[in-house]
Lab assay of single mutants.
Amino acid sequence: ESETFDVELTKNVQGLGITIAGYIGDKKLEPSGIFVKSITKSSAVEHDGRIQIGDQIIAVDGTNLQGFTNQQAVEVLRHTGQTVLLTLMRRG
C-alpha cells in the first residue's frame, strides 16, 4: 500500500535540504526510482516536516522522474526556482 502526496516548499539558505539516491531494484520485488536519502538540519524540508527519508520523489515541478538517473534527478532539482513542488510516494 502506498500513498502519493504533494509538498510545496520554499527554499531557504540551505536550499531544499535533501540528498537523493537513485535505486534500480528488481522490478517485481523492489521499486526503482529516486529516493530521499537524507535531510539536512534546519532545511526547508526539515522545517516542513512532511517528507521522510525513504520517500520516493515521483516528480519535481511536474517533471516526472520515472527512468531518470541519480545525476539527471540532481540536475532537475538544481534548476528549480525558489518555490518547488515535489510529488512523493510513501510505501506503507
Results as ranks from 00 to 15, higher is better:
76 V>C: 14
40 T>R: 14
50 R>P: 03
25 G>W: 08
43 S>F: 07
83 T>S: 11
51 I>F: 00
91 R>L: 07
10 T>I: 09
38 S>T: 10
85 L>K: 13
33 G>A: 07
90 R>I: 02
67 G>W: 07
63 T>Q: 14
90 R>C: 01
85 L>N: 13
28 K>M: 10
41 K>A: 12
8 E>P: 07
23 Y>M: 14
87 T>I: 01
39 I>Q: 00
15 G>V: 02
39 I>N: 01
23 Y>C: 12
72 Q>S: 06
8 E>L: 12
81 G>R: 08
63 T>C: 13
42 S>A: 10
86 L>P: 02
62 G>Q: 07
39 I>C: 02
9 L>Y: 06
55 D>C: 01
63 T>H: 12
18 I>E: 02
54 G>N: 05
5 F>Y: 10
51 I>E: 02
1 E>S: 12
34 I>Q: 05
84 V>I: 06
14 Q>W: 09
53 I>T: 08
21 A>F: 06
87 T>P: 03
3 E>I: 15
83 T>Y: 04
47 H>R: 15
25 G>D: 13
17 G>C: 03
25 G>M: 09
86 L>K: 02
69 T>V: 02
50 R>A: 06
56 Q>Y: 03
58 I>R: 01
36 V>S: 03
20 I>T: 12
73 A>M: 06
30 E>F: 08
8 E>H: 14
90 R>G: 01
14 Q>D: 14
25 G>P: 10
41 K>D: 08
26 D>Q: 13
4 T>V: 11
34 I>L: 12
61 D>G: 05
52 Q>L: 07
39 I>E: 01
7 V>I: 12
74 V>T: 12
57 I>D: 03
55 D>Q: 02
55 D>M: 01
2 S>N: 11
58 I>W: 02
54 G>T: 02
48 D>Y: 03
55 D>S: 00
83 T>D: 08
68 F>A: 09
45 V>I: 08
64 N>A: 11
70 N>K: 15
60 V>W: 05
57 I>S: 01
20 I>G: 03
28 K>V: 11
81 G>T: 05
6 D>C: 11
29 L>T: 14
65 L>E: 02
27 K>P: 14
54 G>W: 03
14 Q>V: 14
51 I>Q: 01
59 A>N: 04
21 A>S: 12
21 A>G: 14
82 Q>M: 07
32 S>N: 06
10 T>E: 07
40 T>C: 10
91 R>E: 10
36 V>P: 01
12 N>Y: 05
36 V>M: 04
